[in-house]
Design a protein around this nucleic acid. Sequence first.
DNA 1: CTGTTAGCGCTTTCAT
DNA 2: ATGAAAGCGCTAACAG
Lengths: 335, 335
Amino acid sequence: MATIYEVSKLAGVSLATVSRVMNNTGNVSEATRTAVLQAMKELNYRPNAMARSLAANRSDCVGIMVSELHGPIFGALVSSIEKELREAGKIAIFACGHSDAAKEKEGIQFLSGMKVDALILHVEALSDEYLLELHDDPATPLVALNRDIRGMQTACINLDNTLGGQVATRAMIDLGHRSIAYIAGPMDWQDARERLDGHRKALLEASIDVDGRLVVEGDYHEQGGARAMRELFDRDVPFTAVVCANDEMAAGAMDVIRSRGLEIPGDISLIGYDNVRWARYLYPKLTSVNYPIREMGQMAARWVLKNVYGARDLTIQNRFTPQLVYRDSAGVAPV
Amino acid sequence: MATIYEVSKLAGVSLATVSRVMNNTGNVSEATRTAVLQAMKELNYRPNAMARSLAANRSDCVGIMVSELHGPIFGALVSSIEKELREAGKIAIFACGHSDAAKEKEGIQFLSGMKVDALILHVEALSDEYLLELHDDPATPLVALNRDIRGMQTACINLDNTLGGQVATRAMIDLGHRSIAYIAGPMDWQDARERLDGHRKALLEASIDVDGRLVVEGDYHEQGGARAMRELFDRDVPFTAVVCANDEMAAGAMDVIRSRGLEIPGDISLIGYDNVRWARYLYPKLTSVNYPIREMGQMAARWVLKNVYGARDLTIQNRFTPQLVYRDSAGVAPV
DNA sequence: CTGTTAGCGCTTTCAT
DNA sequence: ATGAAAGCGCTAACAG
């Protein structure tokens, strides 16, 4: 593979000049510029990104640490970040934490070894304190998704999860439901707690007693949703609606409801959360709270572009508002 | 961030020695080794991956070029490759081609600028000839997923798509269906053509005439599947089963079938292809041909580990056999 | 077993 | 406007 040296020789100029035309830095006469460009083409020259980083002390890489690389949420996130970064000529380097504190730390270490210029994190296991520490270390700027940490709120991009839970339950109430069950996410996750808070809030504002027997903790997975749904039926306290803390669990719940010979939404209304791509493939099509993950990923990328690479004219929105997407799984309460 | 130089000073040894303990190369006395390790810990030293690559002329990065980073197929692929590579201490760098020839080429250029040690490709738009050319250039070894290119078959990892189509249609035949419609993928994609071939083959081996009016070309997306399904109904030639070239289209078709007041599988049986994660969330649960994409991604990663990094004891399987996953959407033909 | 030294390909002063 | 030269942090001969 050709190097800058060979290009300079072929073009009859010095290394420095070739570097200048590559980076559009300093003054280069039109004549030499074209000569260099020509030589680069001729040799099919690709600058060595590694060498460039080393010399420039700037890698043009940003590290993305997520729980998983796949799935409807993380997949969309990762994809939108990569897209935005790439359009700005930056490279996204990914690491997976699998919701495990040790692995998340290890992933961050790995990325820092890659000398990334910035970090975008969407992690569960790492504590607020740890993230704050990282944030206060000026070595690598970072932005955290789905977190809201005091002391670094300008570097947090999150969804108003409480509002989301509220909106879902409120929609059920507006449809006439009074006995509304809730399948929560794992309570050691902040977003799960917030979503549940929202549910409770909606109940309170409608003066409906919150009945502990009507909420059961799931695991954000289909199986957990199914299990929770069975538990709900077994508890034998009547309800006409169930809101789920995410769509996966709603899918599991849906299956169980149907297997009891009940109709959705005729007998039981159902609302999910996240509005993943396949929510509309379900039958009936799932009403769900939208998690604008692509927009939020894009925003995280912009945060980096603005705060690390000095891009102008970018406004950062730290907090996003979830909106209910009405489909067919929630209907008026049976009389 | 600490450098190797500072570590060497703190440990009271030379650069070379530090390098040796980092890489487990050459002989180092136990005493100095611990001293160096200690110094590294003390300084929280992370080797600079860029510098290391430059010097060693080996980046430990492998470039992954896929059409998309997200979605049930690509997401799973990307995730499995990253996992396998990472466990071997290699770094996956991703680029998206969006099924566009120009972007796919550009992505490859980009990755080669990153000086990746190898390339794993899952692309549609690039021609066999172009890939062969790349393959014959020893600069960057490459392995191609979902392709079967003469002249580089040992570097291809693919699914027997024809067999998959055959298996699906054969299952319908075994259930007593004789009039079987087919919703194909875009005919300029090789895998779509192969899957259709399989369908025809199954028909032939059962001595069923292939009726051109019963196959319609879709686009591998839900909307295309719905459109194709409507087209099929409009053509007014009766059928009791439809096999779809992928699950997305099956989801779209399902919706249309139901909207005509028909039952699945009572009136019409349906089989999908790919067996994506949400296939079992559909109602009825979708019977589908499994595309073992994770295994294949893992295999591609192993190919690189073996052929580029010299890992031992890895056997490479170039061709995978699809298997039908029986669920509820396909049943016996109505009498 | 350990140290010295010459690069890897590029950027970036500093001269000219 | 262009060139010379000193590194960036690390590896890999080569000596000793």
